[in-house]
Structures are given as structure tokens and as C-alpha cells.
Nucleic acid binder design. Structure first.
Lengths: 345, 345
DNA sequence: TCGGGTCACGCAATCGATTGCATTGCGGGG
DNA sequence: CCCCGCAATGCAATCGATTGCGTGACCCGA
């Protein structure tokens, strides 16, 4: 930390004005780089500010300018009781958002929505603590978001996009990604593929759609049950353990998220099944650990970084008054070890 | 979102005052529950506010009250080039902090310190955007933090505690935890235990101390090299791959973090070594995935949730003027599969 | 009936930065 | 020599909530 030789503490523009022998108006203009201030004067004022270690008081500035220079990031966790932010996907997204938002000079106001009353959105808006809101994942809150979006425009949501929804989303092409994943399993000779995930959540429903299309399109693939597990590692582990001991034969698993996939693999191994020899597993998300677990996970990659950038970009444009459309990014199948090589059908 | 029947928009206290036929002073006092306002009057004002959907403007309030009701959370990543927030440990911590901070009615201002110039701390302080700062992990920034802490009191740091450091830390007893982990490996019959992690980082240095003490205390345990790997999954994987092919024989690994441990396991498996049969692995942190990777990871548990609570608690007390001491939490060895059972020495 | 006291409430300053408008000084053209 | 105009700067209001101090109304006892 730099040492400041401040005999007179320089906290406000008035302090600078006093030292420079001018009014605070001039200081304000000088610091803003206004051409109205004489060059030498401006330089002198800026020098005083710098040497005094002056940093503008953003609270006062924001009050005057009627804005906050802050973006809210809301994470609804309606689907997992009181579980803390457990999914690395959300957390990686949070990290990229932090990066992108601070890069643009904004602050990031993080809000976890644990026990959603239906007015969380309203309260977040009315608090006036941010200029706009990013919602990570629709969870079970689609209706609430939809309702809020009618009157509140600076809002961008990560998640699945539906034709009849009016709010602006950024997301991956879940249907195509899921379809590619399941088609890959089928191409490797798997015929009994189970879907793990709860289609009540919008994104997961789309992935389930993709799964169904791939299955419907292929021949000789058996219809298998859908297991609506929660998104947490514990719940997914338990679901898979129960399913594996149910006696239903299966040779492939399409997990709605990587966390589910990794937990499933562990449960399968615990049940004496080998991955990928006995059961091939594909996930969705490509979280950082997917490449580094054992066996390495074949999964559908979502470009989280680009997603974060797009959300911030769209939100800032919405704050500026533009009415931006939703954006969908391509999904990419990343083949690793967990689904093995082709085998005889 | 609730429907507001606001013919007259109620945005400010002055609006409410106009409707109620009083001054904004009275509105302010009424909303604050002051006894100076007559009961029926107060109820009426509160009713008007509620029906108008009024939410106080915190920017104005904070300017007047000279505070921000916001806490900064800084994450220095000096150790991993431009890597995004990759370690689940940090990210889980972030989630718990978000929970705890919002629970206390504060906002959370997240700042990622990617390419640390030595004035990041000063800038964060001088921006006046928060009432206090939580730093997650010392990374390579010990000196900067130490320097800042001399003049800036509302500061709490997650990380290792050293006798000669003056800032307030919250952390796990790294030495004892590491010692327990390594002693466990030794008790299981392992004799050639390698340490993976970079002792340049304060916390890791303490874990390395614990490792050395456990080794020194035991008999028949060979001195093995320390491999100073980075904290990212990729770097750790590469380090282990290189080490495994170096020809040095070993039967145990103590990884400084779970991410390193999980990557190491994968590299070992890739090199044809079995875990835990050929090499036993112990990690540190007990991140959520530790229990759910394959094999499940034996590791030293840090109570992240309690850590987050303590940091917020200490910080609020520091903001209130108290000079709180550092806190160290007990570490707990969690035995799972990755170090196997005892074997003949 | 009057003075002292209490209760409710309003006035106006304050927090710090911004900005429309007024003002000052200076130079040049008529 | 005077006046106009421009350049540079100051004044003061503003954003919205808070709060010390002042004031009016009312009640009570003397």
C-alpha cells in the first residue's frame, strides 16, 4: 500500500478545492476532464488529488447521478432446500461474472435466494441497490421472473429459453447439446440409457427434450425411465444408488449436470459396476473438475465465460434503454473417458 | 411480483409526506419506528408506504449515515496467472459468505484481484464502497495485506496465522490438520510420502510444517521431496504426471488441497498406478466433491461455513471499533477411500 | 388565568458530487 | 475609448434521508 504524505487529509472535493484555492465545482470539472477548466489549473488539481490519495465518494456521486454503478446477481435456489451454493457451475459462473462486472467498473451485489417467497424479485428491484439484475438459473422461479420482467427491463437471466417467455435469457442450446450427447452414447452401442435430472427445471426440461429426440430418432434403443433427482451431489448419489439396486438393467446414463454425473459414477462404482465398461456416463456443463475426475467425464460443454460476458453486455445495453433479444450459444460435446469406446451392439 | 395500485408513484419520503399531509421528517421518524411520532400517525404513514410499495433509497441513506452497508470480499489470485476462480474451496467460501452477509442485511461487493499491483488494497479501501473488507486467502499478498492493516482496521483475512503478523485472520489449524493426515498415512504403513503444494503460500507452508513434523516424529519414514505445484487442477495434474515418471518410488501423497489431490489421483491412475493400493492420497479442505469423486477422498476438513460466519462476525465487530484477535478452528481428518486400509510395513 | 412543561411535529442543515446559470475578467473590434 | 463576447470560474440548487433544534398546541397546577 502506498504511503501518503497527507498532513491535510484529502477526503472530499472541498478539501482539494481549499488546497488549490478554487471552488469545488472547478475540482469536480477538473477531475472529470472538462474542457471548461484551464489546462494548467486542471493539471494542478489532478496532481493534488493524486498526491492526497483522493478517491471519489461513489455514494454521493451515485445519489446525484441517480444510479448505483452496481449490478445485482441473484441466485435462486428454490430447488435445493437450504443447500448452500453447491453446484460448481453456478460458482464458476459467479467467478466469471465477478471478473466481467469489475472489469467494466461496476460493483457486483450478490444475493442468494434461499427460501423464495414470491416477492424476492420485487424487493430486489425496489431496494434500488443496483442498476440491473442478472439471475443465474431459473430454478423453480420462472413465473416470478416472467411477472417481474413485464415492468422491469434491466434484467437478464441465465437459463433455458422458451418461445412464450418474454424475459431476456442467455444460455446454451440445451436441446442440441443433450441430443448430441445421447446420440454419442447410442453410436457407441448403448441401448438402455437412463436420464437423471428433474425436468421441472426449465433448462433440464430442454435437456430432457434433447434426450428424448435422440432416443426417438434411433432404432433399437429401449425406452428407459427418467429419474428426477435433485441437483445436489448427495441427492444424486442416493438416486443412483437406489436405481442401481432396483434391478432395472441399463448400460448408459445421461446426467442433467456434471455434479449428477460424478455422483452417479461414484454410486455405480460402489455398486460394483464399472464405468465405462458396464455403464457409460455423460454429463452436462463441463465444470472445471469434469476433466480431472476419475474417470474423466464426457460432457456437454457450456461456455461459461462467454455466457458471463454476454449477460453483462446485454444487461448494460438494457440499462441504456435497448430492448435486447435472448441469446443462445452452441453446445459442444467433449469426449473423455466416462463413456468408453464403441462396442458391439 | 406484487401488483402495486400506485396512481401516485411513491418513490421518496417526500411523496409519502405529501400524501399523509406531514413533513418528510415525520415520515422518516415514523418509518424508523421513532416514539416521537404519534402512534396512529405512524401507523397511517407506514400503511401508505407499504401500499405504495415504498422501499428506502439506500444510496441517500448511506450518504447521510456515512456508511455503505456493504462488505467487500477480495479474492487475490496472484498464484494462478489469469486463471478464473477455479478452486471450489474459494467458491464454496464465497457462497457461504454471500449467505451470511445477506443474512445480516449487508450487501456483498466481490472483487477478484487477478493481476495484483501492490496498490489493490489501497484502492479497495479508498473507493469507500464498503464498510469493511474480507480477504479470502493470502495468496502471495501477505506483505500488501500486512501493510494495509496498519492503518485500516475493518479487515479480516482467511488464511494461515503467523505469530508476527498483525492482521486478523480466521483459519483452520493447518499444522495440526496436516500432521493428523500424514500420521494417518504413516499409521497405515506408508513410508514414502510426498508433499504436493507450494510452501510459498502461507497456509501451505503451515501444512508443510505439519507434514514435516509428522515425518520427523515417526521412525522408518523416508525423507521425500516436496513438489511445489500450483493450485490449479491442470498444473497439479502435470506435476504429478512428471513426478510419477521420474522414477522415484513412493507410496503416499499428501496434497496441499483437494483439487491437487483429485488431479494427482487422476494422473496416478493414468500412469497405471492404483489408488489407494499402490499410492495412498490425502487431501486438504474437504470440498463438496471430495466425498463424491472416485475413489472418495480422505482429507482434512475445514469448516467453511463456520469460517464464513466467524469472518463476518469478526468484521462487523471490527467495524464497530473492536480490536478482535485472530481465530483458529480445529481441523478434522475425514477418512474415506483414497488412502485405503492398513497394510504390512 | 397564567406559566411551566410536555408532546408532536416542522425547519433547515447535512452528507459529497454535479451542473445550470450567473459572474468576473480580459481581449479585440468598432 | 467603449462595448460585446468568450473563457474561466463561482454560486447555489439538487439528489433523498436523517436529525438537532425550534415552535406551536395543549395540559396541568397554582
Amino acid at each position: 500500500m502506498k504511503k501518503r504524505s497527507s498532513t491535510t487529509p484529502v477526503k472530499t472535493m472541498a478539501d482539494i478545492a481549499r488546497i488549490a484555492g478554487v471552488s469545488s465545482s472547478t475540482v469536480s470539472r477538473a477531475l472529470a476532464g472538462s474542457a471548461l477548466v484551464e489546462d494548467s489549473q486542471r493539471d494542478r488539481i489532478i496532481k493534488i488529488a493524486r498526491e492526497g490519495g483522493y478517491v471519489i465518494n461513489s455514494t454521493a456521486r451515485n445519489l446525484r447521478l441517480q444510479r448505483t454503478e452496481t449490478l445485482s446477481v441473484a441466485i435462486p435456489l428454490g430447488h435445493e432446500s437450504s443447500q448452500p451454493l453447491s453446484d460448481p457451475f453456478f460458482v464458476e459462473m459467479l467467478g466469471y461474472l465477478a471478473e466481467e462486472i469489475t472489469r467494466r467498473g461496476y460493483g457486483m451485489f450478490v444475493q442468494k435466494i434461499s427460501s423464495p417467497m414470491d416477492d424476492w424479485m420485487y424487493r430486489l428491484i425496489a431496494a434500488h441497490r443496483s442498476d440491473g439484475i442478472i439471475v443465474i438459473g431459473q430454478s423453480t422461479e420462472h413465473e416470478v421472473i416472467e411477472a417481474a420482467s413485464v415492468s422491469y427491463k434491466p434484467l437478464v437471466v441465465w437459463g433455458g429459453h422458451d418461445r412464450q417467455q418474454s424475459y431476456c435469457t442467455v444460455g446454451t442450446d440445451n436441446v442440441a447439446g443433450a441430443r448430441a450427447a445421447v446420440s454419442h452414447l447410442i453410436a457407441l452401442g448403448r441401448r438402455k440409457i437412463v436420464f437423471f435430472g428433474d425436468p421441472k427445471l426449465p433448462e433440464i426440461r430442454l435437456r430432457h427434450d434433447g434426450y428424448q429426440r435422440a432416443v426417438a430418432q434411433a432404432s433399437q434403443v429401449e425406452a428407459m425411465p427418467t429419474v428426477p433427482t435433485h441437483l445436489t451431489a448427495d441427492a444424486a448419489y442416493e438416486s443412483m444408488r437406489a436405481f442401481a439396486s432396483s434391478g432395472i438393467a441399463f448400460d448408459g446414463v445421461f446426467a442433467a449436470t456434471d455434479v449428477i454425473a460424478m455422483s452417479a459414477i461414484r454410486a455405480l462404482t460402489g455398486a460394483g459396476l464399472r464405468v465405462p465398461e458396464d455403464v457409460a456416463v455423460v454429463g452436462f456443463d463441463d465444470i472445471a473438475l469434469a476433466a480431472h475426475c476419475n474417470p474423466a467425464l464426457t460432457t456437454v460443454r457450456q461456455d461459461i465465460q462467454r455466457g458471463a460476458e454476454m449477460m453483462v453486455d446485454l444487461l448494460l445495453r438494457r440499462i441504456a434503454g435497448e430492448d435486447t433479444p435472448s441469446a443462445t450459444m452452441a453446445a459442444e460435446l467433449v469426449v473423455r473417458e466416462s463413456c468408453g469406446a464403441a462396442r458391439a451392439s
